[in-house]
Write a protein that binds this DNA or RNA. Structure first.
Lengths: 188, 188
DNA sequence: ATTATCTATAGATCTATAGATAATGC
DNA sequence: ATTATCTATAGATCTATAGATAATGC
């Protein structure tokens, strides 16, 4: 039973870390503020994650689960209509989107501990998207683009819309805009 | 002459601040590290900008100048070929792009001092882009999109590509990908 | 007088280590 | 024994204020 308790505690801590990172970013998040949310002291938290960076790594690992719907990144399991649903779902959980967007933004700074993670992740995602586009629309997309050319644009639209939407949810219809983009990509 | 000296000093400090923000983000940037770069103590720097936030505001104000090529954000002065050139130019100054991207990423976190700035800026930019798209391509774009529908996508692609490019410049051809996107937008 | 800088310092934080104490599991 | 937490604390930082000192501009 102890094992289970411990796992629960870890999960609680990760959830709290997600929140605090959404609010302040990774660099701005203090272990003490995460600890406080789960009723621990900062030192108590370090019993579960020995360093701040270890906590971040755990957050990123976990995040990869939900985000892909468990499907995994590299598989060509993306389908455009499912992607649109994912965006719609994301529009209902601004907290998660905010955590992710804050981390991506920070990750481009020097020596950021999430840099490697995002670099590899994006390479995989572009690959997966290209495969999915090929499967769905074939070898040529509008404008004569190849799936490999369209994939980074698809990813860019997903990320870029998140920033605009987080800054001004009332002015930006994220799911609608994404569907608009898919319209552009669909061969007539 | 004293005035001129002072202005120079300010400009030096702003340049240093840009660099440090690129490296560590705003929250991670310390006044002391900015001061050190211009050969001042942290307290000496506070003579020119009374608070850290005042320094950030000055950085953001200045940045708006170059970024628009001085043209201003709200004008419909954007032309798609000029935008493509701007992206090409940006690809030659990763430091600036990194400053901007780090700040945008951070700005979605709670109570970030640049949040208001980016929110208003993006509203203006979307407006300007829509006007530019209308002027250039008319009322209907591929897929039947209106200029107002395409504008947020255009902005999203610009931002999103910057993140992918900063993380992995060797794998992402930012200017090329942007031109690909323009191909999608151009009515046949 | 004003401007440019500096030293000193207050008052908060922050991460991480050391080591104690209590509870749980064999 | 191991696990979960705590107190104490070291050692860095960080921003900002106070007040001194030197140089510059009238």
């Amino acid at each position: 039973m102890a094992r289970a308790r411990s796992e629960e505690r870890r999960a609680e801590i990760l959830r709290a870390a997600l929140e605090v990172i959404a609010e302040r970013g990774y660099r701005g998040a203090s272990l003490a503020s995460v600890a406080e949310r789960v009723g621990l002291t900062q030192q108590g938290l370090l019993h579960y994650f020995p360093t701040k960076e270890a906590l971040l790594v755990a957050v990123l690992d976990e995040r990869d689960q939900w985000d892909t719907g468990g499907a995994g990144l590299s598989t060509a399991a993306w389908r455009m209509d499912l992607l649109a649903s994912l965006v719609e779902y994301n529009a209902m959980r601004p907290g998660i989107v905010q955590t992710f967007s804050a981390l991506l933004g920070e990750s481009v700074t020097d020596e950021h501990p999430a840099k490697e993670f995002f670099t590899q992740r994006y390479a995989l995602v572009r690959e997966g998207m290209a495969a999915a586009l090929r499967m769905e629309y074939g070898e040529r997309l509008p404008g004569g683009l190849t799936p490999e050319q369209a994939a980074p644009l698809l990813v860019a639209v997903l990320d870029g819309l998140q920033y605009q939407w987080l800054l001004d949810p009332g002015s930006v219809d994220m799911p609608g805009a994404f569907r608009d983009f898919l319209t552009l990509l669909r061969p007539e």
